[in-house]
């Protein structure tokens, strides 16, 4: 069971959180200008990184805030936690 440090509440057990998949996938500003393939890229295509992965979690049974986590998908180690709108510490996205 993961131990996730909510940037607002501190370390909490995984069942308090809701997973939100890859972070830093911005919704296109003008979807109408996109081709079907470009739109599919936004809606469906995602990185599926083996190793450090920037992802989103929501503290749904706590403060209900969404935030970003840099987590290694092999070791499950949380490498960094940062708030929405902040850039990942460094390295992979």
């Amino acid at each position: 069971m993961l131990l996730i440090e909510c940037p607002w509440c501190g370390p909490r057990e995984e069942p308090e959180f809701h997973y939100g998949g890859q972070a830093h996938v911005a919704r296109p500003a003008d979807p109408a200008a996109l081709s079907d393939a470009e739109w599919a890229e936004y809606v469906f295509m995602r990185d599926n990184t083996k190793g450090p992965f920037a992802e989103r979690w929501c503290h749904s049974a706590g403060c209900r805030r969404w935030f970003n986590v840099l987590r290694d998908t092999v070791s499950h180690r949380v490498l960094a936690v940062y708030r929405m709108g902040e850039a990942p510490p460094e390295g992979p996205r």
Partner: peptide, 13 residues
Amino acid sequence: LDHLEEYLQTEWP
């Protein structure tokens, strides 16, 4: 509620 919060907090802060 999750869906709305997600867009509000992550896309349209």
